[in-house]
């Protein structure tokens, strides 16, 4: 039984390689398109994570400072914290008492004196506050709305709206362009793979008809074409990974990473996700192309 299986696979693999080689122009096009697709997708992704990484460092971005009304008691402050933590998209809430704020300010002015601290202690002009950090994708407008409606004792809050809006606008534009480009490329890839596989199915149509008569299973008949798709997917993914590595190394790390203010995430940290993503998408695209092609063929020849 085992032996039988391995021979079947060997035979299918041989036919698959044969088919790919016979239609090498189409095979090459398939690999090229899928490869471009993956590299473009990967590049967008890598740029996006790096942009995110750097944007999050910008002061005031994705942080909101909520000030409590003066003389809010501890119990109400605790209620405030709970209410703030409940808001969707809020990642963390850090309480800063007016004393801490005072110390901080004094130290900023190099006035680190116990004396001043003591002097203001009982008549602290500053307010207690909470520093909210929200998720990069959360909507600031919604969070604002929630603060206004569900949190009591709020004196005021600070959001650096300009920075937020601008950066979010850029992020959205980037995401939209990336998505459309990717969808377009995936459609083109699938289309090219379908036609590549179709050509090799067509080249062997007599054989396939006879195989059916003889009693070959559908799986056996389809296997070479599924393998063709698989090979196209894996080869494209492997090439795309190599290209992505080089692009990242030379363009991101060496060229852009030279500027100290920009942090570029080391490739090693992203390598696994890229490998996984490319392999899964490559194989999925290859298989999908083959399956659609076979379905179409079976329909036309049923």
């Amino acid at each position: 039984m085992r032996k039988t299986k391995s021979i079947k696979l060997g035979y299918s693999l041989k036919l698959a390689l044969n088919g790919l080689f016979k239609n090498r122009v189409m095979t090459f096009s398939s690999v090229l398109v899928l490869f471009s697709c993956l590299v473009i997708m990967g590049s967008f992704l890598l740029v996006a994570v790096n942009v995110n990484e750097n944007v999050n460092k910008i002061d005031g971005y994705n942080k909101i400072v909520v000030f409590a009304e003066k003389d809010t008691n501890d119990y109400d402050l605790e209620l405030m914290r709970e209410a703030l933590e409940r808001i969707d998209g809020v990642e963390s809430v850090v309480f800063k008492s007016n004393e801490e704020a005072l110390e901080e300010q004094l130290s900023e002015y190099n006035l680190q004196s116990e004396f001043l601290l003591e002097m203001y202690r009982d008549d602290n002009p500053l307010k207690d506050s909470f520093v909210l950090t929200y998720e990069p994708n959360a909507s600031v407008e919604t969070i604002k709305l929630h603060i206004d409606n569900t949190v009591d004792h709020v004196a005021k809050y600070n959001i650096n709206m300009d920075v937020v809006t601008q950066i979010n606008g850029l992020k959205n534009a980037f995401a939209i362009i990336a998505s459309w480009l990717m969808i377009l490329l995936f459609v083109v890839s699938i289309f090219v793979i379908i036609n590549t596989v179709k050509l090799s199915v067509y080249a062997r149509r007599d054989e396939i008809a006879l195989m059916r008569y003889i009693g070959a299973t559908d799986l056996f008949i389809s296997l070479p074409y599924l393998i063709e798709g698989l090979i196209i997917g894996i080869v494209s993914a492997a090439l795309a990974f190599g290209a992505q590595f080089l692009l990242y190394k030379y363009l991101m790390l060496d060229l852009i990473g030279r500027y100290d203010i920009i942090t570029i995430i080391p490739f090693a940290e992203l390598r696994n996700i890229i490998i996984l993503g490319f392999t899964v998408i490559g194989i999925a695209m290859g298989f999908t192309g083959s399956i659609i092609s076979l379905k179409k063929y079976n329909k036309e020849n049923a």
């Binding site: 021979i7 054989e207 003889i214 009693g215 056996f220």
Partner: peptide, 22 residues
């Protein structure tokens, strides 16, 4: 319905390949 590009041997063997004969 013989395959022109296969020998007589391969034409007959084909039927057995197809059903997974060793």
């Amino acid at each position: 319905r013989l395959f022109e590009k296969m020998t007589v041997f391969d034409n007959i063997a084909f039927a057995m390949h197809v059903v997974g004969t060793p």
